[in-house]
Amino acid sequence: MTARTPVSSCLTALGLSLAMMALPVAAVAADLTVGFSQIGSESGWRAAETTVSKAEAEKRGITLKIADAQQKQENQIKAIRAFVAQGVDAIFLAPVVSTGWETVLAEAKEAEIPVVLLDRDIDPSGKDLYLTAVTSDSVHEGRVAGEWLVKTVGDKTCNVVELQGTVGASVATNRKKGFEEGIAGHANVTIVRSQTGEFTRAKGKEVMESFIKAEGGGKSICAVYAHNDDMMVGAIQAMKEAGLKPGSEILTVSIDAVPDIFKAMAAGEANATVELTPNMAGPAFDAVVAFKENGTVPPKWIQTESKLYTSADDPMKVYESKKDLGY
């Protein structure tokens, strides 16, 4: 899991960004050098983001310099200053915290080097210091999950149990809010129990065990919603150990699309997952190329797609394509 804050409301950004992705990649890309200040290895998703960024740069013939900040802001500030000194063409920043960037980003602006934020946004006060932010909308992710469930159960009464992320993490709050929006207006779908599984497999399993006991051996549970796939992998084990059949008796929907959930899907033990794409750099490269070449100023927020995967999407193939990304 990764924590990120969504940018303010600007839904037209998606359409614009898609239009921009369609732009042909021009020769100028070949000469670009981009410096990327990455947070560090905090999760499998983060590792996958780095791998995908490298691949996307290679695809476009862009030279990508990655600086690992080991979860420290001062390292990121140092890296940005080094990139400015080297005179790179653009800087990508995955900010570890949301405040304290004014000085260093002003330096980059002075050097006329565009900065693109990846995956997380910074404080609104720094809005004119960067070119654009490429992030996912975690409220939207929850909504996609909720809408899938509503569509799948139809008019049937459905008791949902929810495995929340870490209490207080913005991504957990948002994914909860989005899911509630997704099922709003459908009185047949209700959340009967909600507890934190702290984004981990072990906790997800433990919490699911207690849900099963509290809900009469799990017979009254119709679906499980987990804020990330890792908790769902744990919950699936708990259901199997209790003699229940996840994927058929109990529906599952979670978020992130890590490789292991596709393995469960292929085995018929999971139903759906919403992807938090590790490809944040791709749209960012396109925005930078368009900006450098034609002076096209991208919108302030480029929202990445929250793609829904179900067992109909050949899960084994997706698993194979994702397993070597470093998740």
Binding site: E42, S43, E198, T200, R201, A202, K205, V233
Partner: peptide, 8 residues
């Protein structure tokens, strides 16, 4: 959990 989660 049939796996090792070094972070947690």
């Amino acid at each position: 959990i049939l796996g090792a989660d070094a972070n947690n």
